[in-house]
Simulated scan of single mutants.
Amino acid sequence: MTIVYRKYKPPQDLHLHLHLHLATQSEQSATGGQVPAPRESAETDLTAIRQLISSDLSEPYGIYVYRYFIYQWPHLCFLAFEQNKEVKSELVGAVVCKLATHRDVKLRGYIAMLAVATSHRGKGIATNLVTMAIEAMISGGADEIALETEVDNAAAMRLYENMGFIRSKRMNRYYMNANDAYRLILPINEPSTVRHHVLSEQATEAQNMDLYL
């Protein structure tokens, strides 16, 4: 078994897809009606991503959520495929992210979705995908990277905390299944409010320790 990683490959007419997506969203908001979605026949990656994530996450997402992230930040979507001689390559992992300004943080990266097929877990695929996403967001100038995960998702918490993410906030009944969530932050640069807070705490602890020496 060979796992091959690559970025999402947008359709050649991605700009048209994005324009239609935004126009559709605007028209739906104005009319409250259902407007035909952009054609998805050529979007094999998007279809596979949606199927994988929908089968894995407890929070259901509509097609517009996928288009929002993937059409606007295609360079921040990374995929893992299993390849062998007998079977055509199969999508077994995906991470979907964005990078945008956020309040008093100059640029915040955001890991919106991460999924690995059940049969391929425990093989480092999630770690590799998140690492590629983090590197891409840092290259794009991210000051911090954020995400949310369910408080009882021990595997996800272990993955992210081992990569340096910090528990920033607990949000009660955050998901549709009424589960609580942790917001996790990976501080990168000085504008990160979490980084400033953590460094301030560390400085205070160091000063307190000096009092006892």
Rank of each mutant, 00 (worst) to 15 (best):
V4Y: 10
V4M: 11
R6D: 02
R6T: 03
Y8G: 07
K9F: 05
D13Q: 14
L14H: 08
H15F: 09
H17W: 10
H17Y: 12
L18A: 12
Q25V: 05
A30F: 07
T31G: 09
V35M: 03
P38E: 09
S41A: 13
Q51Y: 08
Q51T: 13
I53W: 04
S58W: 00
G62N: 10
Y64H: 07
Y64N: 08
Y68H: 15
Q72G: 07
L76I: 06
L76Y: 11
C77Q: 08
A80Q: 03
E82V: 15
V87G: 00
K88Y: 08
S89M: 09
E90F: 02
K98Y: 00
A100V: 15
R103L: 13
R103P: 00
V105C: 05
K106Q: 03
L107Q: 12
R108M: 15
A112T: 09
A117D: 15
S119H: 13
S119F: 04
H120G: 01
T127C: 10
N128H: 13
V130D: 03
I134L: 09
E135T: 15
M137D: 04
D143H: 10
A146R: 08
A156L: 02
R158H: 11
E161D: 04
G164H: 03
I166S: 07
N172T: 11
R173Y: 02
Y175F: 02
N177D: 14
A181W: 03
L184E: 04
I185F: 01
L186G: 04
E190T: 09
T193W: 02
R195Y: 11
Q202S: 06
A203P: 14
Q207F: 06
M209S: 13
D210Q: 15
L213V: 15
